[in-house]
């Protein structure tokens, strides 16, 4: 043998109430070991209360070249922001 251990992406919830956030990756033979290694590599100073790991090979990502078609359409929809609408002062807080 001598095949490389698979690569895992590591996500950590820093505090209660926050989302898990991607912090990096590591190699491990299985998910359990990936969690153990993630504990040692990414939370040596209390940086987390929860860890997710997922095999890098199983992540589907949008292609950088699709950036325009995917995200440009929302640029023109300024009315999605509340500041698009002028509400008179007399109406009070809205």
């Amino acid at each position: 043998m001598s095949s490389e251990w698979p690569l895992w992406e590591v996500f950590i919830r820093g505090q209660h109430g926050l989302n898990h956030r991607h912090v990096g990756s590591l190699h491990a033979p299985d998910a359990e070991m990936a969690i153990n290694n993630a504990r040692d590599v990414y939370t040596r100073r209390n940086e987390g209360v929860s860890i997710w790991v997922v095999k890098s090979a199983e992540i589907t990502a949008s292609a950088p070249s699709e950036k325009g078609p995917l995200f440009d359409p929302s640029n023109s929809k300024v009315y999605r922001h509340p500041t698009f609408f002028d509400i008179p002062d007399e109406v009070g807080h809205m």
Binding site: W5, D30, M33
Partner: peptide, 16 residues
């Protein structure tokens, strides 16, 4: 460390 890396790989495959 080679035997150890290979051992863990074999274990992971067996469990899967």
């Amino acid at each position: 460390g080679a035997w150890f890396r290979d051992g863990l790989t074999a274990h992971a495959e067996k469990v899967a």
